[in-house]
């Protein structure tokens, strides 16, 4: 057992960081919306799904990619797919806010009503994509089956650490995720709109007294969270090479877990929570087998929350600077 762990520790670490980076990017969307509206946007997993479909559409329908790219062509291609997926997910998130949440907010409905609306929107989007979008877009009679995504990044071995192979796709996923998170962090902490987001999270009424237009801030928050989910979607299809109408479900729950684990409302917490969750479930899988991954992840969540109910970093967007 211990031997297994020693042998598989580094490969599991590489895998854990890769999937953790994707969790973290999705977690940002949950955490930002929660910070500003105290709403758990259950349909965020579908915003991610829409990003994967947009990425697939770009790869197969716009460019008809047949073999992996290399060098600058690959980077250019990735950036292009990301732009499309970010626009699709960001746009969908803004639309979701306008259709499903804003009317309730304007009427002063309870947060529970918004939560129900979020769950409804989640089912609606899944079924819409299974019944209409995926069959029509990719000319498939059955929209509920998995759709393979052609390989975009060659799985070249780059280097080894302690015997674990690190491939190009691992490095791309981790670097892209970290870069996006740094950019978002800088945006929230350094720009005027970012200051408006933090003010709204900390005290929405006083923010209005400062001349902050809450509707604009909410829209920006959904746009940013959606765009991050779009990037996550591209990294997901690069790494796992598939999508399906409910691809967001388990990933969404994991990312939400990551957000809670790090401290919901806290951007840096989402990063930490994402990587922690990815690592924990991969390391745990060495002992119990990979089919126990989800059990391990949620057991750890429950244990951590028992001792730190506000998550690892504890403070939230309302309190913290980030």
């Amino acid at each position: 057992m211990l031997n297994d762990f020693i042998n598989q520790f580094w490969p599991s670490t590489v895998g854990g960081l890769t999937v953790g980076a994707i969790y973290a990017l999705i977690a940002l969307g949950y955490t930002m919306v929660y910070g500003v509206l105290r709403l758990i946007n259950f349909a965020h997993s579908e915003i991610f799904m829409i990003g994967t479909v947009a990425a697939l559409f770009t790869v197969t329908e716009i460019f008809t990619v047949t073999s992996p790219y290399t060098g600058f062509a690959m980077i250019g291609m990735l950036l292009l797919i990301m732009a499309v997926a970010m626009a699709a997910s960001g746009g969908a998130a803004v639309l979701l806010e306008v259709v499903a949440y804003r009317p309730l907010r304007k009427k002063g409905a309870s947060r529970l009503a918004a939560l129900i609306s979020a769950i409804g929107a989640s089912f609606f989007l899944q079924e819409l994509f299974a019944l209409q979008v995926i069959p029509n877009l990719f000319d498939r009679p059955e929209g509920r089956n998995q759709v393979g995504v052609p390989r975009i990044v060659e799985r070249d071995k780059l280097f080894e650490i302690f015997g674990a192979t690190v491939r190009l796709d691992h490095v791309i996923v981790i670097i892209a995720a970290v870069v996006m998170m740094v950019l978002l962090d800088q945006f929230v902490n350094r720009t005027k709109v970012g200051r408006g987001i933090r003010a709204t999270a900390q005290d929405p009424e006083t923010a209005v007294l400062m001349g902050v237009n809450i509707d604009t801030i909410v829209r920006t928050t959904f746009l940013l969270g959606g765009a991050m989910a779009g990037v996550a979607a591209v990294l997901y299809v690069v790494e796992f090479e598939l999508t399906v109408y409910n691809v967001g479900f388990v990933l969404g729950v994991k990312a939400f877990t990551a957000a809670v684990l790090g401290g919901i409302g806290n951007l840096r917490g989402a990063l930490l929570g994402g990587f922690a969750l990815g690592l924990i479930e991969n390391w745990g899988a060495i002992f119990f087998g990979s089919e126990w991954k989800d059990v391990i992840a949620f057991t750890v969540l429950v244990v951590i929350l028992m001792f730190r109910p506000t998550g690892i970093l504890g403070e939230s967007l309302q309190q913290a600077r980030a």
Partner: peptide, 11 residues
């Protein structure tokens, strides 16, 4: 200057 001062605590 609102009731309870409304200072943004994290700023």
């Amino acid at each position: 200057s609102p009731e309870g001062r409304g200072i943004f605590p994290g700023m």
